[in-house]
Nucleic acid binder design. Structure first.
Lengths: 218, 218
DNA sequence: TAATATTATTAGGCATGACTAATTTATTTT
DNA sequence: AAAATAAATTAGTCATGCCTAATAATATTA
């Protein structure tokens, strides 16, 4: 059983939609993520249902079967490992790697991902701080505390980025914020949810609520 | 201007057919290489002709235009660099890497191949001894002496394999013959073109004419 | 040269996976 | 509850890139 590139992208989209929010995975949401027409999504969900990779219920939305989930996790695993490779070995910045990993994740060869994993030293998190699924499908623990929830005076550490858009990553790059960066919350402005934070000794900056809700910390 | 996966495979096939033999690149030869129906080949050649990547003449056969050649060389460059990566960094054997490189070569990103090249230390030859095109399209010198042409008593060095089929590469692996291996010609049997060769001190073996015509040496 | 075999070409079909447009079904809002 | 909006669905179309079958053109061999 082999999946086409399109099928893999649908499985991945459904996986992300169902893990990143508790809303049901609707036709609309999938069509938004993939920039495909809802009519196309319905067609593909029918196909994936027939292949027993997805179950679709008009009211509960789309759900991956165990088989579908396994495939989705493998794709995510490949994507994140390739991201580590691109950043650590080829020297890309973290805002440049997503689109390339998007292509590399579809390369099919049973043991390629295992060899890559070994070559990279079995990393647990990708450059954005997202957990890399193990080959058995297990996910390393993930943090879910937002920077916006940290109290004034406390210091935290950037564990992951919630928004992986190029524009946000480039902004982080400009601020020299990356996974592991220590952030101290100096002040919170109740009016608009913005915060004053200290990045390094003497380096303070003000960030918006949107920013503070896009960083995961521990 | 972007090529589809199929288009890239056709360009590569035409490149290989025209560089590996002086025969014209016929519809038939392309259809044999790609395992496609001749009718499909004609359709694609028409498309590539329209895109000014190929020129097709009923009598002279198919020929890449400058533009088509440039693209083909880039694909070959990517293929061979990925092969080096797979062998040197991920520890694959040389009979396992072709099919994976076949997929990796289609990953599109302008500077990925340049970064990979740098990461690998700017190799000039791939694991099969084939020259890796430079980014300007230049090819390192290639050897064209066959083992079968070496005189009795002389010693040569394996520079490349002419036949890159899995079955031949596995045979070489079994004999511990790889690029750089020294081979001394002990005897030649006129009857069937087979040869007795010495691989290492005390290790002699007899190989067929087919074998001796599949290894390039210098 | 005529017969045969090989190649090239055309025409028509098919699967995949996208699309639009029209319609039905659900969900909100008034 | 009725009206308005949003989402889901169906039907039909289209491009890509493959296929088969039939035919035409070239080469080869007797």
């Amino acid at each position: 059983m082999m999946q086409s590139l399109s099928e893999e992208n649908y499985l991945k989209a459904i996986y992300h939609l169902s893990s990143l929010s508790q809303n049901k995975v609707s036709i609309k949401s999938v069509s938004d993520v993939l920039n495909n027409n809802p009519a196309s999504v319905i067609g593909m969900l029918k196909k994936l249902t027939h292949k027993k990779l997805v179950q679709y219920d008009k009211f509960k939305g789309a759900k991956l079967t165990d088989k579908g989930l396994k495939i989705a996790l493998l794709i995510v695993r490949k994507h994140r490992l390739w991201e580590v490779f691109l950043l650590e070995k080829l020297g890309y910045n973290w805002d440049e790697i997503h689109d390339i990993a998007e292509q590399l994740e579809h390369v099919k060869q049973n043991d390629l991902v295992e060899r890559l994993d070994k070559f990279l030293g079995f990393p647990e998190y990708d450059p954005h701080g997202d957990p890399i699924p193990k080959s058995n499908g297990q996910l390393p623990a993930t943090v879910s505390n937002l920077l916006s929830g940290i109290e004034v005076g406390k210091t935290c550490r950037v564990a992951a980025v919630k928004d992986t858009s190029t524009i946000f990553l480039q902004y982080l790059l400009k601020l020299s914020v990356s996974i592991g960066t220590k952030i101290k919350v100096i002040d919170k402005i109740a009016f608009d949810g913005s915060m004053k934070i200290q990045l390094r000794k003497g380096v303070e900056t003000i960030v918006s609520q949107k920013f503070a809700e896009s960083l995961l910390v521990d």
